[in-house]
Design a binder for these strands. Structure first.
Lengths: 339, 339
DNA sequence: TTCGAAATCTACAGCGCTGTAGAGTCGGGC
DNA sequence: GCCCGACTCTACAGCGCTGTAGATTTCGAA
């Protein structure tokens, strides 16, 4: 096995100094055509590639960013991860993906250990408190993903869950639904997304003078398909039965559809179903699912951009970017014939 | 912003040499209790964390491995990625995830560029030829994921697609199906999985003296849900109509179910549906899908282990590990009443 | 023709860690 | 009481790259 060539080998072969090779590699503009030619020839003849650890050291920049989400098994995050990787590549960053499982200890590890390994962190927190983040954000650029919280402790990219929930509720009301059950309101204080969605729902209901009925709130232990199936059972037992369900996540919605199907409850004839997160699957459930689609590309792009800007200058004011969302109406919520 | 403490700062504070601190950090056993105490105190007082780039340089080991798959949007790969990250962590490796889109140029980039950044590569190739891999595997440990190909050019973890296809076909036959259509045989020479699955199907059919009917082969442009919907349309038009479909991937199977549902064809009464890859979703489609489940954990664990062993000694013989698989029978293929 | 700015390139000192080599200390067997 | 091996720790030279400072050359304008 031959030894991997180093910068000095290239320099020797091209008859120039190390720094000249380095300059060429790093896009320094003032290099004569002949020198450029010689160096490039040497590089390709030797098959030289820079050693990135050494480069990191010299530059004091690791070239990595961390992207930490609860779970890659959630297609929403998997897709987002792919987009972040692409967006980061444009900034010459390589992405380290970290799964936190939504556990506070893992999220903590990410913000406390990663800084010594990465130039910045993009985190979708589920359990971390504002204080934990604020502390770390002073040392390392951190971009938060998620919902509009109260305090702005670090740059972040947020979805407007209140507005999205209003939109989808409006749609349910317009298509003739009145008794709208919800699956996924969580009492956990830190899971703010569900609270904002709840808030949006109530706003839309109030606008149409439809009273909010606590009996229509279904609890779930987690946001899984299995939880959705259980929710469907509760749903079917309610009297009078709701004429629509709003699920706070696509997997739960898919589970609800599956559960209702198993129970012989017809969707959308007997009950309309809608959810959040327009994952691939939503278009192909039976029937296809009405959802809120987030601007995933915009999210990834904004997150990386905020991180890059913060990396460049630490004393920028803290910013947040709110994402667009789109209501995707599908067969799971076609208009009801009569109420 | 205070400067991040270095090893030398810890050493100074503890009143020992740098190397002693380094030794402690790296698990060197012969350190007196008092020294250990002093150093640990200094570390925690300063909040010291090692700079990993510097460590990589000193050690000549980057501490990274690359994991390259076609797409994270495929839940099968997303889940696998999560397991690989966990398994790698146990070997003190951090994983860089790379999406290749199955494109040869991207796969090429991974095996040619990554070696200067990682200690090894785990790759699920789709377009790369044996030669491309063989060449690179001499320099950098590479573990291939996928199907049992003809030549063993690098360590690999393979699924026995022939046996899996036989098993699932046997199941279809046992449950009374005779006219078994297939969705997903691809003519592309490099997509060997489909060929092995085809081969397994034929073996099982032959064993039961059921002739293979070319008319029952449905082509798809890709392995997406949308392709499955199209396949369902072809399926419905066939006369006589097949009594079962074997889909070569779970997303396609989900699409087929969705398509059949849209066309009013009842599953499993009129037609049984089965697929490969037991993704989460499979359990919750309507009806739930019979699939082949791979041993994802075993796959991740074996891949990382092979990589680690190869990293330790380059002149090991090339090895391959074959995975177990399990048939998951669900409602999409319940026994037919009559044939 | 002369001079300064721009262009081009070189030399060398780090970046923060680990490996190697070796110095000093301690304790038990003879 | 002496010697040797095991233990504990230190000193210092890299790892391969980039930044800084500065040397040298080139070129257009005065």
């Amino acid at each position: 096995m031959h030894v991997r060539p180093r910068l000095v080998d290239v320099a020797a072969r091209a008859g120039v100094s190390q720094k000249t090779v380095s300059n060429l590699l790093n896009g320094y503009p003032h290099i004569s055509a002949t020198t450029r030619e010689k160096v490039e020839a040497a590089i390709s003849e030797l098959g030289y590639r820079p050693n990135l650890s050494a480069r990191s050291m010299g530059r004091g920049r690791t070239g990595f960013i961390a992207f930490a989400v609860p779970s890659l098994s959630n297609p929403h995050f998997a897709e987002l991860a792919g987009r972040v990787i692409s967006a980061a590549k444009r900034q010459h960053w390589t992405v380290l993906i970290e799964e936190t499982g939504g556990r506070k200890v893992s999220e903590d590890t990410v913000v406390s250990t990663m800084p010594y390994l990465v130039d910045g962190i993009i985190l979708h927190p589920e359990s971390l408190t504002d204080d934990d983040v604020e502390d770390r954000a002073r040392d390392t650029p951190i971009v938060l993903l998620g919902e509009r919280g109260l305090e702005l402790v670090a740059d972040r990219v947020v979805a407007d869950n209140v507005a999205a929930a209003e939109d989808i509720t409006e749609h349910l009301i317009e298509t003739g639904h009145r008794r709208i059950a919800t699956v996924g309101i969580r009492s956990d204080a830190h899971l703010q997304a569900s609270q904002f969605r709840d808030q949006g729902l109530r706003l839309a209901l109030a606008r149409h003078r439809i009273p909010f009925d606590d009996a229509l709130v279904i609890d779930v232990p987690d946001y899984s398909r299995a939880a959705g199936v259980l929710a469907a059972q509760s749903l079917a037992k309610m009297t009078p039965r709701p004429d629509a369900v709003l699920c706070f996540n696509a997997a739960v919605a898919a589970g609800v559809l599956s559960g209702l199907h198993g129970l012989g409850v017809r969707v959308p004839d007997e009950i309309g179903v809608a959810g959040f997160d327009d994952i691939d699957e939503a278009e192909f459930t039976s029937p296809p699912l009405t959802t809120i689609a987030w601007d995933i590309d915009g999210m990834a792009e904004a997150a990386v951009r905020l991180l890059a800007e913060r990396y460049e200058s630490r004393d920028l004011p803290t910013r947040d970017v709110t994402l667009k969302h789109t209501l995707k109406t599908r067969a799971s919520t076609t208009p009801r014939r009569s109420v």
